[in-house]
Amino acid sequence: MPVFFYAFAAVSVIGAIALVCFRNPVSSAISMVGSFVGLAALFIGLNAYFVGIIQILVYAGAIMVLFLFIIMLLDLKAPSAFKRSSPLILVGGLIIPFSFVIQLSTVLSEVRGGDPKALPLQDAAESFYDHERDPDNQSEIYNSLQKKSLPDVNLIGLTLFGHKGDNASIRTPGYNFPLQIIGVLLLVATVGVVALSLKRKQSKSGGPES
């Protein structure tokens, strides 16, 4: 349904433009929420329900609310905080995105899109067929793929952590390795936040108590 696609894409783009144009940080944050909602709708339109819901719950919900809290806590006086940028910067700021858009649209127009093909869900279902189980007692993923619907959440788990296909000796690889690196990354980020912002109590003994 292209009507919905264009409608939500428009919501998303208008939200993004409003985010940049508003002078008031609160308005900017709210328009970013609007942009995220449009984006989430696009994800859902692509059958990616899980990502769509996460987009709303985590980004539009948690992160943007946190943003709003911080903005209101800091009590920024928006209009006076910014100076008008010089016309030279404005021209440069227009030329670069403009040339980028031209380049992007040229490349896009050269790519022969063709009609979107239906996903080969039947084939996908076969790869999840488990010979050790009864034909009637197959996994949730197999069943929903048979019914031509994407088992979104289950599939994400299996893609991330790997799974056994119909041939039990071969394990389809997942993304455990990058996942572990991300674990280290999050640890470093947490340590960094503490290191950069922690205020220790002034203790007479000079101990490292915090």
Binding site: Y175, L185, G192
Partner: peptide
Amino acid sequence: LVSIFVSLELVTITFYI
């Protein structure tokens, strides 16, 4: 490209701090 991206981000984020 996935492992390149995550390891590169690990290095970059450490350097931000």
